[in-house]
Design a protein around this nucleic acid. Sequence first.
DNA 1: TAGATTGTTAATCGATTAACAATC
DNA 2: TAGATTGTTAATCGATTAACAATC
Lengths: 205, 205
Amino acid sequence: MLPEKTVERLSQYRRTLLNCLSLGKTHIYSHELAELQNITAVQVRRDIMFLGFSSAQRKGYDVKEMIDMIGNVIDSDEVLNVAVIGMGNLGTAVTHYFIGKRPKLNIVASFDIDPERYGQTIAGVECFHIDLLNQIIKDRNITIGMLTVPTEVASETAQKMHDAGIRGILNFTTVPLNVSKNVYLEEYDMITSLEKVAYFVKKQG
Amino acid sequence: MLPEKTVERLSQYRRTLLNCLSLGKTHIYSHELAELQNITAVQVRRDIMFLGFSSAQRKGYDVKEMIDMIGNVIDSDEVLNVAVIGMGNLGTAVTHYFIGKRPKLNIVASFDIDPERYGQTIAGVECFHIDLLNQIIKDRNITIGMLTVPTEVASETAQKMHDAGIRGILNFTTVPLNVSKNVYLEEYDMITSLEKVAYFVKKQG
DNA sequence: TAGATTGTTAATCGATTAACAATC
DNA sequence: TAGATTGTTAATCGATTAACAATC
């Protein structure tokens, strides 16, 4: 199992490398990748160690090969199915944002309680009534959920997701969720992030 | 200067404490706060040490006082002005999400290049043409920007923000920005977060 | 008092960086 | 070769946790 931070960076390297590839770059040095990522070359090389990957030395790393190696390490073999729970502004935006970005992560359903929304296709994804959560998650073998509901119903919705067998939650709400150990929970908290920016902006000044 | 992680948690404690207060709770033990936050009581107490705050011992911490102490430490004295750059789905959702959430952080302008958007008030905030970025940022004393533009224009937009005197950027795009040292940059990267969830979900299984 | 809780130091853990030999 | 680059170990830094005396 890789360290959390390494997984994060590998995901970012891949995106940068895909971009390099589309610009026609076939090889890249650790210091080049580092500069694009605003980190050090040593950091890059240390992360690459985890891939068990070697460069054609002195010519840098083969971009295409490295993309594949990262995929081997951080992607699932099969496609993982994802659901978006709560199709308000945020859920809709997030769905738009993701669609087609990652081939191994497939958004296959969304849920809402508003009659204006369920029954529709929003941002290219079918939206269901929240009461169908349990059934659809099981039917469609959904393992990951993005939680974009209003704070008032965040806890109970997370509970429903857990009961339906969701294995990982990306929590966009500001409510700290209490889920069992076998659900991987990643907090994605805008307000904390913005307050952090504000703090360090103030302190720098 | 507080450690980054402590700043993050203080922001989260405050939100939880505000919620406790609205439920009529006047005092809270470190282990109670820890449980709400899914962390340890020691962690909570260690963070509180940074506040230079003492409890009325054995009765737990005074909720109201602690909220104030956190504000003293992480808030600015004055209100900080914030701009949202890019009012597509994501920018609009983010603006909705923030409006009124933090009294010390005030969204005072937004920007877009689409004639359907600039000139309008979107999510309660005036939207300007992106060409007015420099002027409005200076006029309205905006120090923090949330970057929600398409990836293709992320770098150049960040450069414009920097040139206009922005001091902190919360980057919602997937492009690693290259900004000078005196701009505080916080990455807010959904795809990396989701890939991380996917990785650990797979590994757990 | 006895038990619960806090505040703080020391130990541990994890992540980053420095140093450098090996390679082309 | 000489210079640039890589891969890896050891040192450092930062954050978390364990341990425990002090307090009510």
